[in-house]
Amino acid sequence: MTSLIRALSSSIGKKLLMSVTGLALCGFLVVHLSGNLLLYVGAAEYDAYAHALHAQKILLPIAETGLFLLFILHIALGLITAGENRAAREVKYDTQRSKVIDPSSKGAPNLASKLMVPTGLIVLMFLLIHLGHFKLGIISPGDDASEAAKAGRILSEGFTQVVYLIGTLVLGIHLFHGFQSAFQTMGLNHPKYTPLIKTFGFIFAVCIGLGFASFPAMGYLGRFKETETQTTENRAETPTSITQRK
C-alpha cells in the first residue's frame, strides 16, 4: 500500500488523479447540463426534475459530498502541481515561443493546454458564484415561486449573464485540453483511437461550453422573463419547491 501512496503522490500519480477526477467531473457536467436543458423544455419539467432530485434524501448528500471531494481533489492537485511547475523553472525566459506548428494536428490544443491554471481558476470563481446563487442562496437571494423561477430570475440579471457567459466559455476552453489530455495521462494513446478521442474531446468541450453558455445568453435575450412570469402564474400548483429548499 505504501508504494501505491508513494506512486500517487509522484508527478505522474498526481496527474493521474487529476485526470480521473477531471473525467468524473466531466460526467457530472453532462448530468448537470442535461438537467438544465429541461429549462428549455418547460418550467414544469425543470421543476419536476429539481423536485425529484431534492427528494433524494440519502443519495443526494452522498453524491454532493462525492462531488465536493472530486472538486477539492482536482483543484488542490491543480494548485499543488502549478506551484511545483513554477518552482521547476526559477528563472523565466526572456522570450519563449511555441514550436508546435499546427495545434490541431499536433493533438494538444496548445494554447488551451498552457492556460489550464488560469482557466481552472476562472472556472473556480464562477463555480463559487454559482454555488452562492443556487446552492447557498447568499448571492441575490429572492423569494421565488419555483426553481425555474429562481433560475429565470437569476439568469435575467446582467451581472449573472456576464459572469456565467465568461465562466462557461472558459470551462469549455478548460475542457478543450483537459478532456483529451486526461486520456494521454492515463496512458491511453493509440494511433487509431487518439484522433477519435481528440475529436470527441473537441466536440464535448464545445457542447458543454456552448450548452451552459446558452443559459446566460438566453437570459440576455430575455428568454427567461417568460419563465419567470409563467412560473409565477403556476405558483399555486407547485407551492412546495421553495419551502422544501428552506
Binding site: S11, I12, A88, K106, S113, S181, Q184, T185, G187
Partner: peptide, 30 residues
C-alpha cells in the same frame, strides 16, 4: 516539473521523439 501534455517537448525534440512515449510511460507507471 509535471507534464501538462502541451506537446512543446515533441515539437522541440531534434530526434523526433513522439508524445506517445509519454503515454506509454504513464501506462507503464500505472
Amino acid at each position: 516539473g509535471n507534464c501538462t501534455n502541451t506537446a512543446e517537448c515533441e515539437a522541440a525534440c531534434p530526434a523526433g521523439i513522439s508524445l506517445s512515449n509519454i503515454a506509454r510511460l504513464n501506462r507503464e507507471y500505472l
